[in-house]
Design a protein around this nucleic acid. Structure first.
Lengths: 190, 190
DNA sequence: GTCTATACCAGGATAGAC
DNA sequence: GTCTATCCTGGTATAGAC
């Protein structure tokens, strides 16, 4: 069962990840779901409230997906590669980039709570990556900076993949760019 | 001597780098420069034309700044670190991020020429970084992927720094994040 | 090259019926 | 929970005077 609120969030999330927060409107969701704008306002009174709901759900889902990777991987190296796969698969779905990457760029347009949640998302990722790096034997003095670098390279790889999306059919190749960047980092860091 | 067109470009570039392409309007430039909106249209008939002028100038200026680094650095390592400094300094100026990073995120809202120029900008950077890495002794089979990773980490570091910009006065610390990420990459890759 | 005035449409949001 | 109708504002752009 999918509620209307969920369908709105699905549509909105894709729109944000593809066009940016200021690049879509309620009219776009309305057209996609064949529902009127006031109906959307009924579920999410303001666009800011919609953004807040989006990031809350995104963090939950991302945490769950990361746990899948955590449980399915045999060693730290595999965990880091599998984690990068989450980003690569995001891009493979219609050239989307990380929701929080978009929110970071559009931070000025967003309410404080969303900005804080975005920051918290990255802090959470940093902490997890640092833990995996420690598990892989990296000295504690280096894990923090290395985790930041790994995270930055993944978010940046999505940007580069997006920029490269000129010839429309090349999304597969661009997804590999994300994986390739991650592989380079894992090899170099460990 | 600064022409009106230049002043418009200056204002617009800052606005794009801080708010995103869809996050500002001619009214913002109008207010900042104490000039009317039609005057801006006189110099740049459409917002798309303004974006095109922006990226043309950005590429020229970035190339010049990179040449400064190229000429001033003694060895490849210093060149890479100095290059990262260009990104760090961008962020230090009011929390700006790379214009092309923003244009990559907002690509769907931009005309084809701007998208192509954004892609070309990144291709240019990739090529330059790859050349420096080769100069540093990296085998030719690895330079391409490593350059992509370095570039991604710099663009991503700007995103993370922006997201972290919660407490307003901490811009200095965030600029160091960019430099720290770059240092981690240089050490790990070479 | 800059202005006033204005057109036009879209975005975000509300009132109130069903 | 969804609709029709409507409001207000702001964004992009043009016409035409100075």
């Amino acid at each position: 069962m999918t509620t209307t609120a969920d369908r709105i969030l699905d549509s909105a999330q894709t729109l944000v990840q593809v066009r940016g927060y200021n690049g879509f409107s309620y009219a776009d969701i309305s057209a996609e779901l064949s529902i009127t704008k006031p109906s959307i306002h009924h579920h999410f009174p303001t666009k800011a409230a919609l953004a807040e709901a989006l990031i809350v759900r995104y963090r939950e889902r991302f945490a769950a997906a990361r746990k899948e990777v955590d449980d399915g991987a045999a060693d730290p190296r595999q965990r880091l590669v599998g984690y990068a796969g989450l980003y690569a698969e995001t891009f493979a779905q219609g050239g989307r980039i990380c929701l929080c990457g978009v929110f970071a760029v559009d931070a000025e347009s967003l309410p404080v709570q969303v900005r804080q949640a975005t920051d918290a998302f990255f802090a959470d990722q940093r902490e997890w990556v640092a833990g995996v790096l420690a598990e892989a034997g990296m000295p504690a003095t280096r894990t923090s900076a290395a985790a930041e670098a790994y995270l930055a390279s993944l978010e940046g790889a999505l940007l580069l993949a997006r920029a490269h999306g000129q010839p429309d059919g090349a999304a597969d190749q661009d997804r590999d760019v994300v994986r390739s960047v991650a592989a380079t980092l894992v090899t170099a860091l460990l």
